[in-house]
Amino acid sequence: MIPSKITSMADAIARVVPSGASVCMGTALEAAIPFAAGHEIIRQRLQNLTLIGPISDMLFDQLIGAGCVARFIGAWVGNVSSGLGHNYRRAFEQGIPRPIAVEDQSNFTIALSLLAATLGAPYIPTRALLGTGFLDSNPAFKRAEDPYSGDPIVLVPALVPDVTILQVQRADAYGRCHLWGTVGISREAAFAARRVIVVAEEIWPTERIVADPNLILVPDVKVAAVVHEPFGALPAPLQGFYGRYTEFFTRYHEASRTPEGFARWLDEWVLGVVDWKGFLDKLGTDALKALVPRRVLLSEPLDYGA
């Protein structure tokens, strides 16, 4: 029998995400962002990470402000409901708390980069980004001539993250997981990565997960660790489990305007708690209750009969 991959968040991060690794997160765009995993990365003081993501709604700004990040590959870092990311700006413009390099991508090209990796293709050609500054500021892109039409084309190279971290609704002990709702680039990001950490709201027996094999996001051979962490995406939403805690994003935006304000925020919400349970205790049960979906909307069961 295969050994269970279930472990604590602290152990999963310590074992699977070394300093210097490239880490892909926030792959479902504004939903299912693995905040619990990100906060543990900050607590473990990981350094020189490369962050990969399409957009990042606040989590990457926190990791950058905490000094964990040397490089960002993606399309956007900020706070979707409030605006820009103060730490991202400070790091890039002033090197505070440390300088970071940026490799600009669009949402399409980051998806194509990861898709190329899933196919074992060296690159994917596209017309996206023709005529833009991306072709100057990100040397990974190459201008080429389409050998068929002779037209100009952009080559997007395959991108293989060392680790992709996913927040999902449910998984078994071996990392077979079901994610629904907004998925964004989650499937490509997980399938492209060398290793995956699955953070699940619920751990289900294998037979109930494999009863719907079409919904399994990524083959379990990719999964290095499974962490059971309810509410692990908060304050981002997760379909069927909780809504978006927008006020928390707004308060972070105000708190992080200055390095001192961000340091206080970090002490209070990340460094000053031992684990995700500590974060949730600080949020309080009233806040959690207010985010519970008001409606249950079940899909129809599928008949996989043979």
Binding site: N107, A111, G184, E188
Partner: peptide, 20 residues
């Protein structure tokens, strides 16, 4: 909606697929 990925945006959707 505060963002396009807020759960209510999926309720009544006619397709939910990948960004790609």
């Amino acid at each position: 909606l505060f963002t396009m990925s807020d759960p209510p945006n999926l309720v009544g959707a006619t397709w939910s697929t990948s960004t790609a």
